[in-house]
Nucleic acid binder design. Structure first.
Lengths: 291, 291
DNA sequence: GTATTCTCACCTAGGTGGGAAGTT
DNA sequence: AACTTCCCACCTAGGTGAGAATAC
């Protein structure tokens, strides 16, 4: 039951918060303290997305609903953004697959929850993706963000073990991008190794200074993976328009942010599949007498 | 006594072995398995060094000899390489200081030893440097290597607690470069943050496949730090000639590679200053009775 | 009542030198 | 006799959910 990542070599990752400005100006900024004021809204990316699903279509709460009918973890279909933008022929070739799909599917069947804390909590399962169709000689920036699925707030009805709409969403929080810390990648690297977002952390602290992704508790979210082809001579935010984007969404990775697990089956699956929670597995807990 | 690095923000580092070819072709190769055959001899870099001390002058074994008379950890003097090469005006401005000088000095007084193992052992103390005089807008590759100080093999005379020459050096080993895994750096990053080589590992395994630095046991070595200004359009080994180099040597970081500590005072200083060895400090060891 | 925060035992992952055992 | 290898107890560093305490 414990989840062990497949043998494909992985790139390590380091926690890393980026503003678009820093990203574009240095090409590979590793500064951890990008000032909050320079972080630009997600929409700058969304408008250029080539594979972005209209998020209003993703609002099903039923864990056996729209998402579970998604046949594949490979996102290759160009979807219709509000302002349709056709990717270049070259970018259209790129595909991206979710390496951890099996485990995500198990969680998705139950209704995935992710803990958010003040200091930041990792996601489990981890988002790990592989790319194909990239140019081995080119350089790419790979990043992740997490966007609201709908405009609702939820609560969990323990007596019937299901999620209910509890009202309108809380005010939106500062949108943050998690640029994969090994960016920029060469296309050659992307073809050889999977990209793991294991170090990304989620927080409910609106004033977070660590660059973690800020979410509202009891709201439903969709992680997204973006890839940008980097041009060597682009060195400022102004050149952002000339970058080329693709956005990939894996519907089985949708989750509800919580400060404590609601569904006990989710707790059990986390304990059984996350190596760090091994101490809570039945066989290793001390009984009252042993203690 | 325990050494805590100063508060200046650090860049994390990841283990990383580079061939020059990979370094130059991708700009920032993160491939961990550079084929041995592509690793080029150190001399490609040495010939371009602007601050390389003639290593034959560094052969003193007496821990109170030449090195301790070195007045400063700031290496700014251009020294005379075999083929003198004048650094560009711009590169000549760069200076580099050893952030961990105080601790290195303590070890150097006793005669620093570094453990080498088959699987690779970290250095302690760690080499941590700060740069000044770099161009904030430029990109730099920062790397480290470790070169023999002389052509001798040594042994330790326990009864007199001193090192003796034991003969001629063993055959030289494949020279390896440790490119700092956060390379390339922007000049801006280098001015803000120190560069730490904490992840570099030393091995005595000539067939090492992990990219660790290979050393002969009972030989004396000098670590060196190199900085290369990276030009965006250079993308192959052929362009290496057009890169600009500076090399910095901190004589207080010279050490003898060993498979087990020889000088008990070195062991004691390691135990007292390396947090990972805390278990061996007097106060925390169990007596026979307690055990 | 519901949601959040905090501390804790219990893990993973991996860096230490000691010391026994092995090699040359 | 000198040197190397291997396993080990003991650390650092930090990721888990439980459950009590607190906040709203």
């Amino acid at each position: 039951m414990e989840y062990t990542p497949p043998p494909k070599p992985q790139l390590s990752s380091r926690a890393n918060a980026f503003s678009i400005a820093a990203l574009m100006s240095s090409g590979s900024s590793k500064d951890k303290e990008s000032p909050e004021s320079t972080i630009k809204p997600l929409e700058q990316f969304v408008e250029k997305s080539s594979c972005a699903q209209p998020l209003s279509d993703l609002s099903s709460l039923d864990p056996h609903g729209d998402f579970s009918s998604s046949p594949s973890s490979l996102c290759t279909e160009p979807l219709i953004p509000t302002t349709p933008i056709i990717p270049s022929e070259e970018m259209a070739k790129i595909s991206c697959s979710l390496e951890t799909k099996e485990l995500w599917d198990k969680f998705h069947e139950l209704g995935t929850e992710m803990i958010i804390t003040k200091s930041g909590r990792r996601m489990f399962p981890t988002i790990r993706v592989s790319f194909s169709g990239v140019d081995p000689e080119a350089k790419y920036i790979v990043l992740m963000d997490i966007v609201p699925v709908d405009n609702k707030r939820y609560r969990y009805a323990y007596h019937r073990s299901s999620w209910l709409v509890a009202g309108k969403a809380d005010p939106p929080l500062p949108a943050r991008l998690y640029v994969h810390p090994d960016s920029p990648f060469t296309g050659e690297q992307l073809l050889k190794q999977m990209v793991s977002f294991e170090k990304v952390k989620l927080t409910n602290n609106e004033l977070d200074q660590h660059g973690h992704i800020i979410l509202n508790s009891m709201h439903k979210y969709q992680p997204r993976v973006h890839i940008i082809k980097k041009k060597d001579h682009t060195a400022s935010l102004l050149n952002l328009k000339s970058e080329e984007f693709r956005t990939f969404i894996f519907p089985e990775t949708v989750f509800t942010a919580v400060t404590a697990y609601q569904n006990q089956l989710i707790t059990k699956l986390k304990i059984d599949s996350n190596p760090f929670a091994k101490g809570f597995r039945d066989s290793s807990r001390l009984t009252d007498i042993e203690r």
